[in-house]
Design a protein around this nucleic acid. Structure first.
Length: 439
RNA sequence: GGGGGCGUGGUGUAGUGGUUCAACAUGCGGCCCUGUCAAGGCCGAGACCGCGGGUUCGAAUCCCGUCGCUCCCGCCA
């Protein structure tokens, strides 16, 4: 017999069916037992008349909620039943995996344990509808991102995550024993996607793991996360990257809205709207003026950079004045950017770069890259780097590498923004942080 | 790395010096209920209040240390 999904039971009235799912609730009465069964498509009531099979009744009485069950029975219409107006009259029950009693916590209870405890029992936590929806949305979003790219001739890449030399700063790298030497976990595909530009691929993207050895204890940092990266060639400036990115992001919103808009409204009370293109843009110089005007005081050491409070203030400002959730902050001082961001020839000390803020949270960084070998070396030296460790990277720019740029985008931060989640640990399948390596 | 907050039955909370201070909810066990409505009623078990030290006649409650968690800053996606 084939398994019937609970949502399709109404097409099999008066037939014998087999369903598979979890025991959501058990109501054990004097003469009747009612089992509420949950599968990924819904809930249904299964009724059992105890005197019809006392042995089976005894088995059911011992079941703990969340047990994995296979149920065979007859679907009948019953207007009295509040759950869908139908129920299954139990004929046979197979306990595939009984849930121990008691559960560590009740996933469907009125109160949830704190997050840390839920993460210890993440698989039970993930049974909650709200969590399933988060990862359905993530799946749809990633598919939309890929669709948008692939329709525009992009190549998907998978760059190595084990590296021989620290690529950028080196401070935030995890090291690991590697035969006779030491290797490092990639903290970004940055150099490798630029290599693809040197390879003449013109347009590439990668969705993959990124590792950061920062001991950050915040609601938006992880030591391992999924980076969404893109790089394109033959651009005139970072504006080309932003123009592509905002359309790509709007397309992603559109797809998520079409497929999950109602569920998101119901579950998160978020009315998803596709962001209007173009997103507002504000230069760093303008941002400093704006912050002064609205009375946000940056710490004195922040001469070239924003702090999280400033980002939230800017996000709130554009939400109020333009109804915009996303805003590009552009033209960052070289002091605040890595050596490979291109300097603006018309604006001393300013890079052709941007951050994307979503609801005041930094969700992406991008730029036009410096592709001219000699200038790139000069900029690296200006940052105090020694050239030898980055020699293989610098070599990408010796034999015909076109002007290019791109961005890195945080997948889980994106979900936080889109679904209004307050903590990144809710937006990722399994959280990795300084003190969290398990499960 | 710096700073703040929290730590009470399985879980979530109440209690901030003694006097109903160890309570409430949920879960768990038992009994009851003519088919319930993500049920209801009654009864019961379950925490020496993170750990160690101190103050006090007396500490879950105050102090110190320590561990764990959490949030913010730094850093970033």
């Amino acid at each position: 017999m084939e398994r019937t999904l609970i949502k399709n039971l109404d097409q099999q009235i008066d037939q014998q069916v087999m369903i598979k799912g979890w025991l959501h609730t058990l109501r054990d009465q004097k003469n009747m037992q009612f089992l509420i069964i949950r599968d990924r498509t819904g809930l249904v009531q299964v009724a059992h008349y105890k005197k019809g099979n006392l042995e089976l009744a005894q088995t059911i009485s011992t079941l703990g909620t969340e047990s994995a069950l296979t149920i065979i029975g007859k679907v009948v219409e019953n207007k009295v039943v509040k759950l869908g107006g139908l129920e299954i009259q139990l004929e046979e029950l197979i306990v595939e995996n009984a849930a121990e009693i008691p559960l560590p916590f009740e996933p469907f209870g009125e109160y949830l344990p704190d997050q840390d405890y839920r993460l210890d029992w993440r698989y039970l936590d993930l049974r909650r509808d709200i969590n399933r929806l988060i990862f359905e949305v993530q799946t749809t979003a990633e598919q939309a991102m890929r669709e948008y790219w692939i329709e525009r001739d992009f190549i998907e890449m998978h760059s190595p995550k084990i590296m021989g030399a620290p690529s950028e700063s080196g401070a935030e790298l995890f090291s690991l024993p590697y035969f006779e030497t030491t290797a490092y976990l990639a903290q970004s595909p940055q150099f490798y996607k630029q290599m693809a530009m040197a390879a003449g691929y013109e347009r590439v993207f990668e969705i993959g793991p990124v590792f950061r050895a920062d001991p950050s204890f915040t609601s938006r940092h992880m030591t391992e996360f999924t980076g969404v990266d893109m790089e394109i060639s033959w651009i005139d400036s970072h504006e080309d990257v932003m123009a592509f990115m905002e359309r790509w992001l709007a397309f992603t919103y559109q797809k998520v809205l079409e497929k999950h808009g109602d569920a998101i409204k119901e579950t998160f009370d978020v009315t998803l709207t596709v962001p209007s293109v173009p997103f507002p843009r504000i230069t760093m110089a303008e941002a400093f003026d704006l912050l002064e005007k609205i009375g946000y005081k940056l710490p004195p050491e922040k001469k070239f950079d924003l702090d999280p409070g400033a980002e939230r203030a800017i996000g709130a400002h554009f939400k109020e004045t333009e109804g915009a959730d996303y805003v590009f902050v552009t033209d960052w001082p070289f002091e605040a950017r890595p050596f490979y961001h291109m300097l603006d020839p018309n604006n001393q000390g300013i890079t052709r770069s941007f951050d994307l803020l979503g609801s005041g949270l930094e969700v992406a960084t991008g730029a036009q890259r410096e592709h001219r070998y000699e200038i790139l070396k000069t900029q690296a030296l200006a940052k105090g780097l020694t050239l030898e460790p980055i020699e293989s990277y610098l070599n990408y720019f010796r034999y015909g590498t076109p002007p290019h740029g791109g961005f890195g985008f945080g997948l889980s931060r994106f979900l936080m923004i889109m679904l209004n989640l307050s903590n990144i640990r809710e937006a990722v399948y399994l959280f990795r942080g300084p003190t969290r390596l398990s499960p």
